[in-house]
Design a protein around this nucleic acid. Sequence first.
RNA 1: GCGAGUGUAGCUCAGUUGGUUAGAGCACUAGAUUGUGGUCCUAGGGGUCACCAGUUCGACUCUGGUUACUCGCCCCA
Length: 423
Amino acid sequence: MSKNIFSPVRGMKDLYGVDFNKYQYIIDTAMKISKKYGYSPIETPIVEHTEVFQRSIGDETDVVSKEMYTFKDKGDESITLRPEGTAGVMRAIISNNIIVSNNLPLKLMYYGPMFRYDRPQKGRYRQFHQLGFENIGAKSPYIDAINIALANEILTAVGIFDCQVCINSLGEQLSRENYIKAIVKYFSIYEDKLSEESKIRLKKNPLRILDSKDQGDKEICSMAPKIYDYLSKSDLKYFECVCETLSKYGIKYSIDNLLVRGLDYYSHTIFELKVCNGQYKDAIGGGGRYDKLLSLLGGPDVSGIGFAIGLERLMMLLNDKKFQPKENIISVIPVSEKEIDNAFELYNTILSNDIRAEFIHIGQNLSKKVEIASKLNSTILLIVGSDEIKNNTVTVTYLNKTEDEGRNKTVDRNNIIGFLKHI
RNA sequence: GCGAGUGUAGCUCAGUUGGUUAGAGCACUAGAUUGUGGUCCUAGGGGUCACCAGUUCGACUCUGGUUACUCGCCCCA
């Protein structure tokens, strides 16, 4: 097919049918769980000042440097379609003066479309959806563990059971800086053997070398200094407490010293939720603690922790069959034009009793109308003809039954609502 | 930004070393005739073979370019 304006813009897609049902189900489930944990919903604008993302995510990250949808508006202001949710939520906290104190955790959840100008592929779109949670104000290993438990609970509730929790710690800023110095020193020795990408990372974002999927890089990484030797005593104790608490919760996790994050604002506990079911093995969610994010954006110096789940990736893992609608759709059918008004009256009565129904009056003959009803997946027909009107009855036909099973049934018109409610 | 693969009917796809009028299944429309659809039968509609150029007597088929989609890499959720 040649290009036409009726196909969506590259990397964008229409959400409807089974996928829409999956989306709705995930949001509903997450909302329910979020209430239990004391989160309240927030919806921030899709567009923010470009600086909001530059300052929080980090200028050097790929997300900011090459994946953002950035435009000049008519006032010559640089604005950006949000590539993730956390930055906007932090900005909202500051601009609405939502009170955050060190011992009063503020818990917010959000969901909606995010935009990254990236090459589309399986489970990745330029407009995609995330569901995220932010817990701001208090810093404690217990809160970190609860946050991970929450992420895990949502996935389990939705029906993802083969999910693996990977955690790591990036420590306080000073610990991290020392560690980065150490790995730069280490990787510089092997610079010639590193992949081309990692050579660039060495200068731009050395931590990301640890995350490389290149075989050669992996071998070099296996001998690299580990962050645990560079964490301060309190950092280490904090991390150990997070792990112990998770164990107490009964949450299986694995410590991955090579786990790093793509956004610059993370510190301390970071985690990722991976799914490994053979056909697909990638992170469907991830997050971590951010000590300096709020103050970076001009807010109070308060720590927070959050995570986000990629909804398209999650939806991909859900079984289509469970999300196909299967209800008993009722169709009201007048036999001929003479009965249209009478049948329409019946149709309205049904609707006013909050029962879903269709009114099928277009079609040359009864045969045609039944065919239309059938194509609408209607299983129950209410036939109104001259005989029915005369006798004040309705003929009920079950399209999913055979003649032998009692396909047709005559019901008194006055009892029809009661009859339908018991189906 | 890099690599690979695909593009033929509404959908899923065939299409012989290049040769008349490009096919199948499903879907669609009608035959159905006065109150019953789904399965069987019959007929019918529907294609600039993604686009542009080149080679050739002749191109869906070969070559080059463009474009779109899909899948990887990078990156990320």
